[in-house]
Design a protein around this nucleic acid. Sequence first.
DNA 1: AAGTGGTCTAGACCACACT
DNA 2: GTGTGGTCTAGACCACTTA
Lengths: 261, 261
Amino acid sequence: MAKPARYRELAAALRAGVLSGEYGAGGRLPSEEALAAANGVSRGTVRQALALLRTEGVVTSRRGTRRVVLEQPRLQSFTELLSFTRWARSIGEEPGGSVDALEWRGADATEAAQLRLAEGDRVLAVRRCRTLGGRPVMVERTVYTEPVGALVAEMPTDAVSVTELLESHGLVLADADHTVDLTLADADDVALLGCEPGGPLLRERRRTTDPTGLPVEWSEDRYLPDTVAFTVHNSLAATSLARLREAVGPKVTEGPAAPAS
Amino acid sequence: MAKPARYRELAAALRAGVLSGEYGAGGRLPSEEALAAANGVSRGTVRQALALLRTEGVVTSRRGTRRVVLEQPRLQSFTELLSFTRWARSIGEEPGGSVDALEWRGADATEAAQLRLAEGDRVLAVRRCRTLGGRPVMVERTVYTEPVGALVAEMPTDAVSVTELLESHGLVLADADHTVDLTLADADDVALLGCEPGGPLLRERRRTTDPTGLPVEWSEDRYLPDTVAFTVHNSLAATSLARLREAVGPKVTEGPAAPAS
DNA sequence: AAGTGGTCTAGACCACACT
DNA sequence: GTGTGGTCTAGACCACTTA
């Protein structure tokens, strides 16, 4: 059941209000005092709710004036973001996909660093082609730590959602680091996506950790052009975004949280 | 001077501690009580500091256990993120660039929607080529609202940092929405960047607003491959990231916060 | 059972934006 | 000056982890 906290309920209600245009574009929210009184909670709780909306980019906030509505919310839950299947469903598309290669092997240097393992430690490497409405849009190369890989390896190769299966085993994904850049199609990409050899792909590399901070998976996803874009909101109050200089001369494989140098 | 809040000082101190390896990779922070006592503040203030670090992806947090260090922080300030010049300096590169085209004209449909203007309203459109260490890496096409454009238009065409100049006029950038995807080089890109016609570029579209929530600029930046990557951290606790389905059939120009349909 | 973070309250004072 | 959000305090109770 797990009843959500009051401040989350309040945040959801306010978010819905903004979405329904209750305050208008560029409109103003009621004061914290007013919201507290209207909802029978303390000002502290109201502020917790509003802090959520602020990091989501739904409202601004400055001293001296009421909060202003920034935009229609256009966010996905953390879960939708990590699960291709859930994302596809949330936008009304039919997700599909199948495992194309699956192998237990030793971790290479990058994988070891990302999963906080020693080089050569056993990991499960899986390659999948993902489709929307039957058309291929993305190739996903994921590496799992041993305990997680053991669960994944037992899945049917045509299983729709890995994430949901992991959750049913009690595994919770809590944090993720994403790196987005551009790469060129290799022979496998060409075979699976039907693009030109050397054709451009939008690449997302992602390291996901569980609530204890232990790495769970390290994935490199390559999307066909014109199928997806990634959006982020940030502000003076809360920044979780950065721009990285990519290697220019010698080739260096680098991920979101690889060792500094 | 503007003395920063205690919780920001505390957050900075803890961030520095994590960076210096004081707690080790995967190590644990002291308890909230301990931090409060050690710093002579209340638990509430400690929690504010830790909330900052949590959204930055520096630490996890769960009920029942001490916070765990997630990674070496690798973030840029909001300001570094918006200013090419500041970013370049922060990574030890020499920023350069020059205005290539500058024009007052009427806003098109997309621009009007992004800047919350009516179609045809006067805007200043500026195209710049940006360099790192003398080598071109990015073409920036920015559209400013009339009051901001008035300031920009008076700048010398070889001014290094537009952002810093705007700040010196008291303009504060407070929020930004970013969309990252892939596009192909047009004739102007080829001329400025020296890439192949139709060659792939990493595109960032960005809408920036001031503290009142009013749009200030709308920019489309196109980076040569292998020059930058964007990184984001998100979590169950705070998500400001989304994955968007891009138009597949008919061409639709769409930005971070364009009207829903 | 003890320790820890999550939620919530009630109140105080300050900095800033309005008018 | 009045209203508003930002900061900070002190205390309470709960949910969860760990031993």
